[in-house]
Write a protein that binds this DNA or RNA. Sequence first.
DNA 1: ACAATATGGTTCGATATAGAACCAAAGGCA
DNA 2: TGCCTTTGGTTCTATATCGAACCATATTGT
Lengths: 160, 160
Amino acid sequence: MPDDQTSREAELRQTFAIFNEVAIVAQLSRTMFEARLPDGAGVPHFSLVNHLTRVRDGQTPLALARAFQVPKNTMTHTISGAVKHGWVVLKPHPTDGRSKTVWLTEAGRAFRKEAIAALAPDLAEVNAATTPEDRAALLERLTELRVFLDAYRDPKGSSG
Amino acid sequence: MPDDQTSREAELRQTFAIFNEVAIVAQLSRTMFEARLPDGAGVPHFSLVNHLTRVRDGQTPLALARAFQVPKNTMTHTISGAVKHGWVVLKPHPTDGRSKTVWLTEAGRAFRKEAIAALAPDLAEVNAATTPEDRAALLERLTELRVFLDAYRDPKGSSG
DNA sequence: ACAATATGGTTCGATATAGAACCAAAGGCA
DNA sequence: TGCCTTTGGTTCTATATCGAACCATATTGT
């Protein structure tokens, strides 16, 4: 077996290791965050409410599904949970009878505010344990990888 | 609001963004991998079989749960799926009547071999789209973060 | 106008993950 | 020996995620 082959395989293993670490970090951070969120709140609920706050509410479920890169049935499920908790409400779409729009409630805004306050200490611990340079580099490389994967699996950007 | 405060908040947002990207990459890569795996095979099944191959089989479910940083009931579930597919078999522990041991089957070894071959092209695409230096840096920083989170959430290293 | 197709959303079935309660065997200790 | 605690695993319940099938409304093409 020539050297080219063995070193290529070593690089594939390294890339596999990257995805492995990503999966572990995702798992650990999800657990960490959910421990801080109130009652039946999960990360998807917070992400939804956070997105509606930062961008704008009144978006359709499909637009949200695309924003989060998840299938539309997953977004249906997340929204229904948020509705059940009273953080958002659904209203009919003004011009498209098939569609709906998602709106924040006061409870939703309060939930987001409290969640952010509850999450901050953990984030601060991470910042205390790492350097700003490492974090900036990590974010850059992760974004690069995410952008590639995004385009790789779905060259045209569909999601429904 | 003093500058210290605003820059600290900016850093918290950046760290939050890191976890956000990690979650997205984890999601995209999981989907990508599972599209390549046969029939009802999921990433956890592959990870299990891969671990049993690389380290050794005959380990107990609890040891495996610790190796993968998951609760023991999650490992019970993963193993039962792998047993159902015929990739591993359970045998009683030789000296501990409460415990079991997990063993690879020939089908399990074949599954791993085929899965690796099926996954390689995707990994190669990632390698074609990134530089070795970026990948090495990413892996390093991810590992650093994973090690921190691991210690942060569980200073003593328990898992059962 | 009308049939064919495309789109927005939900439902169904499957796997994944995790906390809590539970059971059975092992180990410690009087 | 017998009780109590610890440990290994499973079960129960709940949320998350996703593909496939499905329904209703819109849009397109003729």
